[in-house]
Design a protein around this nucleic acid. Structure first.
Length: 109
DNA sequence: TGGTTGACTAAGT
DNA sequence: CACTTAGCCAACC
């Protein structure tokens, strides 16, 4: 590997990459797993820089299951399309069966 | 060195 | 129940 940035971001990417297919998680859950529960914003900030990485950022949403970061994807509804492709039910930019698809790295990883 | 930013979250109104 | 305020912390300029 090439740990160029060796920072909080890399950790976030690593966890995000560990998200199973058809599952989603929240920024806060990732932050908590990294020991920075209150740094959920930093996780989102990291995802913003995840462009070009093989990080499934579409599987990461806010704690309400709302696709807050869909605007950062290429298409208008690309994020939603990807999630629906994995079996998620999305309505009004929000994952309906969010609780069922939720994946907590602190518990399942 | 210091101030701004942001794909968040919890609590208050 | 929907909007507002405040706290949080790492990266960037």
């Amino acid at each position: 590997m090439k740990p160029e940035t060796l920072g909080f971001f890399e950790k976030v990417y690593d966890v995000a990459r560990s998200i199973p297919y058809g599952r989603v998680t929240s920024y806060g859950a990732i932050a908590k797993y990294l020991g920075a529960t209150k740094s959920a914003r930093i996780v989102g900030y990291a995802m913003n820089n995840s462009s070009g990485k093989d990080v499934p950022a579409h599987r990461v949403v806010n704690r309400k299951g709302l696709l807050t970061g869909k605007h950062h994807f290429e298409g208008t509804n690309l994020m939603q399309q990807l999630l629906e492709n994995e079996g998620a039910k999305i309505m009004d930019n929000q994952i309906q069966n969010f609780e069922a698809l939720f994946w907590d790295p602190s518990k399942e990883l």
